[in-house]
């Protein structure tokens, strides 16, 4: 590390803080930036600054947005009676790609995880209940991750929301399309059987 000039060391150290970036990757990125022309690095700096200055959380659904309420919440074409609950903002993109779903979203910003010390107070649950109490919601689709923590979160939320009256559904878990039954494990297979449908 002592081999590099101090500003380079500093850049490598900052890059190393990013998720999934080890020392070697940080070094490679730092030298890429060093070689890049000024216009390229200026665009990167601007993009980072803009994200930090203009992106906020939607006060209704907690999605990341530059206008509040966000475009999903105010879109006249979307069904105001259905809310799909996800863990992270980037999960919305996966549902939008289907072009099937036309309801609203709610982002929890995490999942319940007792072992990591993440409890109900650490998630954005309060404004979900407020949305339900407003009375127009017919269905809640729980689309937290298909793992133990996502399941615990879905269980917790369904118990909490049941008295408020909406239909509560959970996305199906099962065999991924394009895979082979031979390689599915018993839990996945069990879920796939339990979630089978009439043909």
């Amino acid at each position: 590390m002592l081999d590099y000039a101090e500003p380079v060391t500093k850049l490598i150290d900052e890059l190393k803080r990013l998720p999934g970036i080890g020392h070697k990757s940080a070094q490679r990125l730092a030298f890429h930036l060093l070689r890049a022309d000024r216009a390229e690095t200026a665009r990167l700096i601007e993009a980072i600054t803009e994200v930090k200055e203009r992106i906020i959380l939607c006060s209704t659904c907690n999605n990341i947005t530059d206008v509040d309420p966000c475009r999903y919440c105010t879109s006249p074409g979307r069904d105001q009676g259905i809310i799909l609950v996800v863990e992270e903002p980037f999960n919305i993109v996966a549902f939008e790609k289907t072009r099937e779903y036309k309801g609203l979203y709610h982002v929890l910003h995490g999942a319940l995880s007792p072992i990591r010390g993440i409890g109900p107070d650490d998630l954005k649950i309060k404004n979900l209940l407020e949305r339900l109490r407003a009375g127009e919601v017919r269905e809640i689709i729980l689309a937290t991750n298909p793992n133990t923590e996502g399941e615990a979160t879905a269980n917790y939320l369904s118990k909490l929301m049941r008295p408020l009256g909406p239909r509560i559904t959970r996305i199906a878990m099962g065999i991924p399309v394009g895979s082979d039954l031979e390689y599915a494990d018993e839990v996945t297979m069990h879920k796939a059987l339990a979630n089978r449908h009439e043909m």
Partner: peptide
Amino acid sequence: FYIASRSYETASALAY
């Protein structure tokens, strides 16, 4: 997984 998905309480007990 089946036991943990029984309820939030069970999931928390298993996490503990």
